[in-house]
Computed example of a mutant assay.
Amino acid sequence: MNKISVKTLYEQDFALWIVDTVSKLKAEEFNQVDWDNLIEEIESLGKKDKRELKNRLTTLFEHALKLQYVPLPDFYRGWEVTIKRTQSQLRDILKDSPSLQNYLLEIYTDCYQEALENVQIEYDAPFPDICHFSSDIDSLLTKKNLQ
């Protein structure tokens, strides 16, 4: 395929573009690879993981705050399940990309602040302005009680 038809393939059928690109890489047909789009896709993978990490950490803090400060026992089990599931998802991301542990620590405070703002909209409870959850990654991602 020439360069114009490859870009058309990328725009028209992303899944087929992936198959085609992998096939060319395996066959070492490097001059046939759509490098611009391949580079863009690889860069977006790293950004996606970072966004996912941020979203999951914010969710973890939201549910931990609700569990500790919102007196609605009928909801506790659901919040506990969400905490457990979110911890597992965060562990999976960090298992695949251990270098993101540093990023998790970088976004820790921002995620807490976002979670705090979200739960303050939802509930009128005495949530702490300063994060009191452990910043130790192992504790944060394994303990039922995050303190």
Score class of each variant (00 low, 15 high):
residue 102 N to P: 07
residue 143 K to F: 15
residue 44 S to I: 12
residue 84 K to W: 03
residue 70 V to E: 02
residue 86 T to L: 01
residue 137 I to D: 01
residue 106 E to T: 08
residue 146 L to M: 06
residue 103 Y to N: 03
residue 122 E to L: 15
residue 43 E to R: 11
residue 33 V to I: 15
residue 90 L to Y: 10
residue 92 D to R: 02
residue 101 Q to A: 05
residue 10 Y to M: 13
residue 24 K to Y: 10
residue 97 S to F: 02
residue 113 Q to T: 05
residue 119 V to P: 03
residue 104 L to G: 00
residue 27 A to M: 06
residue 49 D to C: 03
residue 36 D to V: 15
residue 43 E to P: 11
residue 20 D to C: 04
residue 141 L to Q: 00
residue 35 W to M: 07
residue 58 T to I: 04
residue 66 K to C: 11
residue 113 Q to L: 09
residue 120 Q to S: 15
residue 138 D to N: 13
residue 26 K to S: 07
residue 69 Y to R: 04
residue 42 I to V: 15
residue 103 Y to P: 00
residue 14 F to C: 04
residue 102 N to I: 03
residue 134 S to E: 06
residue 113 Q to P: 06
residue 57 L to M: 13
residue 44 S to Y: 10
residue 138 D to K: 07
residue 65 L to E: 00
residue 122 E to A: 14
residue 40 E to C: 02
residue 48 K to F: 09
residue 136 D to C: 13
residue 15 A to M: 11
residue 72 L to P: 01
residue 21 T to S: 09
residue 79 W to H: 01
residue 89 Q to A: 11
residue 28 E to Q: 15
residue 109 T to Y: 14
residue 44 S to M: 10
residue 32 Q to V: 11
residue 6 V to R: 03
residue 77 R to C: 02
residue 18 I to K: 04
residue 70 V to I: 15
residue 29 E to D: 15
residue 47 K to I: 07
residue 49 D to Y: 11
residue 30 F to A: 05
residue 78 G to Q: 05
residue 133 F to H: 01
residue 77 R to D: 14
residue 138 D to E: 13
residue 78 G to L: 04
residue 68 Q to M: 13
residue 70 V to Q: 02
residue 56 R to H: 14
residue 60 L to Y: 05
residue 1 M to C: 08
residue 92 D to V: 12
residue 59 T to S: 13
residue 126 P to D: 15
residue 63 H to A: 02
residue 47 K to H: 09
residue 99 S to K: 03
residue 127 F to K: 02
residue 11 E to I: 03
residue 76 Y to K: 10
residue 58 T to H: 10
residue 19 V to G: 04
residue 100 L to P: 00
residue 117 E to R: 13
residue 39 I to W: 12
residue 9 L to H: 06
residue 94 L to S: 01
residue 110 D to A: 12
residue 6 V to C: 11
residue 102 N to C: 08
residue 77 R to A: 14
residue 87 Q to T: 03
residue 61 F to Y: 12
residue 62 E to H: 06
residue 34 D to Q: 11
residue 100 L to F: 05
residue 83 I to Y: 03
residue 55 N to P: 01
residue 147 Q to A: 13
residue 68 Q to P: 02
residue 71 P to M: 14
residue 112 Y to P: 00
residue 137 I to E: 00
residue 45 L to P: 01
residue 27 A to V: 00
residue 102 N to L: 13
residue 75 F to P: 00
residue 98 P to V: 08
residue 76 Y to P: 01
residue 113 Q to M: 09
residue 144 K to L: 09
residue 20 D to W: 06
residue 71 P to A: 15
residue 98 P to I: 08
residue 55 N to S: 14
residue 88 S to W: 09
residue 33 V to T: 07
residue 139 S to D: 00
residue 130 I to H: 07
residue 143 K to C: 05
residue 8 T to L: 14
residue 16 L to Q: 06
residue 67 L to D: 02
residue 91 R to I: 10
residue 133 F to W: 03
